[in-house]
């Protein structure tokens, strides 16, 4: 192979020295998140979304390995898993948590403003993303980050 040490690809590889976590943690978190969001959608209860927004905020700001769901994974689920799992960079799930936070805040704002449709649509999108992540290992950052960049700098 003629390996090209492209400066950009080098930056991608080494420069940022990203934190690596067990990839099953965020996936487990997505399962819980899906259940919480489905509950919010079924009950129309804004406080469920407020609670989930707090979880998203911790995941978005501190990192997905610090959420209550990650705590449950680390202490109750991981000790029972026999095999070592795949690892991943912390940034992709952190990006997904940030997007989740935006949807949760939109839903909460809609609900407090009396706009029930905004609540329903925002929670529905958040549920779709969380469920896709949980069931199909969907990578939100892979699919939307580049489209966002392209849309922003047109």
């Amino acid at each position: 192979m003629v390996q090209d040490t492209n400066a950009l690809s080098q930056k991608l590889n080494t420069q940022q020295a990203p934190t690596i976590i067990d990839a099953r943690g965020p996936r487990f978190g997505a399962v819980i998140t899906s259940i919480v969001l489905a509950t919010a959608l079924a009950t129309n209860n804004v406080w469920v979304i407020v609670a989930q927004a707090v979880v998203f905020a911790i995941g978005a700001i501190k990192g997905p390995q610090f959420t209550p769901y990650a705590f449950i994974f680390k202490n109750l689920v991981k000790p029972r898993l026999k095999k070592a799992g795949a690892t991943e960079d912390v940034r992709p799930p952190q990006f997904a948590q940030t997007v989740g936070l935006l949807f949760a805040l939109t839903a909460a704002a809609g609900s407090f403003a009396g706009l029930d449709a905004v609540f329903t649509i925002a929670v529905a999108f958040a549920l779709a993303a969380a469920f896709l992540n949980a069931a199909f290992n969907f990578c939100l950052g892979c699919e939307i980050y580049l489209l966002l960049l392209r849309a922003r700098s047109k």
């Binding site: 192979m1 003629v2 390996q3 090209d4 492209n6 950009l8 690809s9 930056k11 991608l12 892979c142 699919e143 980050y145 580049l146 489209l147 960049l149 392209r150 700098s153």
Partner: peptide
């Protein structure tokens, strides 16, 4: 020996990303 592998950070090359219509990573 006859194959070359190049990795590009899409974020740094948005012009090229548009030209080649790259939508996801």
């Amino acid at each position: 020996d006859d194959v070359k592998y190049v990795e590009i950070d899409a974020e740094e090359q948005l012009e090229l990303v548009r030209t080649l219509d790259i939508r996801s990573t």
